[in-house]
Design a protein around this nucleic acid. Structure first.
Lengths: 137, 137
DNA sequence: CTGAATCCTTTTCGATACTG
DNA sequence: CAGTATCGAAAAGGATTCAG
């Protein structure tokens, strides 16, 4: 391989992985990151059953803070994954719903969750063995 | 943090998404988080072409630090997604390779990356519109 | 070469308080 | 009801140094 005493320090910021996502690299990474985000997954997972209003979402997604719910919804809205509909009523009412695009993302994410569920035991087993090998002895 | 000693545990049973993470919840979330992790995705993506040694990985995954490469590899190894093979040679040589389990995860993640690639333009469009609507002020 | 350990900066996120 | 604004704790992550 490299026997020529020359070290390529280039390391240009051509993107973390030149041979994989390649093309639109940066944006792809952002999207994948978002798809793997805890709150994103839980929010769109909750919305799959139909539109919900802000407070209902907050109650359904146990443990989420107002700050994170708002932030997550803004991101999803910006990417066109959910819609925000405000009704000009006396007690304010705002409903969030998955878009078609959001639904397709949900499918992909669900596949990942299913994978996790399928191999849950196997992974737990590996972890237990790894931990016992490194901790004990 | 809370002095009242009551910390919300993932008691999802009462929410509308009872059919989702629910059961093994905690572990599932960890696994999905890992699958969405930037470095995890890049590392297993790089390993799909075959085993690589530490330094080669570091060069292939442009921008990763030693600290993160080591950390990521340990996690993957612990979960049984990659194997670590050390050869007792004078210049130490260590090779990392995807396991069968790791390959199946790669498939799921690749699906996600493909989704991102497919809808890249659409998302960019949504973002641009959203940003212009909020910037206009 | 393959890491482990340390330091230190950046980012993330929960808690809290306030508004239309 | 549906948020926004701010603060501090905590985690993530990069750079650097040392070791087997």
């Amino acid at each position: 391989m490299r026997a020529d005493g020359e070290i390529e320090r280039t390391a240009v910021r051509s993107g973390p992985c030149a041979r994989w996502p390649a093309e639109q690299g940066e944006t792809i990474r952002q999207i994948v990151d978002r798809a793997g985000d805890k709150w994103t997954v839980l929010v769109i997972g909750t919305l799959q059953h139909g539109p919900l209003r802000y407070t209902d979402l907050q109650h359904a997604v146990t443990g989420i803070s107002q700050r994170m719910l708002t932030h997550t919804l803004r991101q999803l809205q910006r990417d066109g994954l959910v819609t925000r509909t405000a009704y000009p009523e006396v007690p304010p009412r705002v409903e969030y719903a998955l878009t078609d695009l959001g639904t397709t993302l949900l499918d992909a994410v669900t596949a990942l969750v299913d994978w996790a569920g399928t191999h849950h035991d196997e992974i737990q087993d590996h972890r237990a063995r790894y931990d016992s090998e490194t901790t004990a002895r």
